[in-house]
């Protein structure tokens, strides 16, 4: 497994250590608000284990996935 891989976040390329979750990668890149709440507030990960659903993002065109439960894969396209 490569030590480092590349993902794209809102069109911007990021280098990420292998094994990093999407949520951690986004936080490391300074993206703290991963979704907008019903009233438009930014929300980010809370429980870190897939229960609170606050870190939902779009990956490769699929919406409403939990960033904390997904590991970064080479070439992943993330929108949030």
């Amino acid at each position: 497994m490569p030590e480092e891989l590349r993902i794209r976040v809102n069109g911007r390329e990021l280098a990420v250590a292998a094994g990093t979750s999407v949520a951690a990668a986004l936080l490391n890149a300074g993206i703290r608000g991963m979704r907008r709440s019903r009233t438009g507030e930014p929300r980010g990960p809370v429980c870190g284990m897939g229960a609170c659903m606050e870190c939902r993002i779009t990956v490769d065109g699929r919406a409403q996935l939990r960033a904390c439960q997904l590991r970064c894969r080479e070439g992943m396209e993330i929108e949030c």
Partner: peptide
């Protein structure tokens, strides 16, 4: 799972559960 209780501002990004932040760090959060 953790019991999370509401207080003003608890929904701000970077307010996490205790185990929640630990899990994020284990998942690569610097």
């Amino acid at each position: 799972r953790e019991l999370l209780l509401p207080f003003p501002g608890w929904t701000l990004p970077n307010c996490c559960g205790a185990g929640g932040l630990q899990a994020l760090v284990k998942a690569g959060l610097a």
